[in-house]
Amino acid sequence: METLNFCFDSAPVLKGASPALCGVVGSGNLEILIKTGIEPAACRVCIKTSARGFGETWQAVLGSFAASHAAGGTVIAINDMGATPAVVTLRLAQALAEYQGGGQ
């Protein structure tokens, strides 16, 4: 297992208060928990992943998410079992939508 921590600049999230969870820690999948943080223009991410050595890929995928979504003021915790970048991108968007009360 590898633990990775990142912090990205991101526009403040529009709304959202109650924590949201999506995904399952199953093969090729991951779970994402979004909670409210204390820095309005930063998105902090902590990842625990079973696949070692993919730090740069995580940085690219998460950086792209933080740049294209207003995710500032959130803390994101991820438990990963080898999800592909495409799955991670979809789950991040889904989790943010649920955090903002959007559902699926």
Partner: peptide, 8 residues
């Protein structure tokens, strides 16, 4: 055991 858990 170096395995990722689930929050719940």
């Amino acid at each position: 055991l170096e395995l990722p858990g689930a929050f719940d």
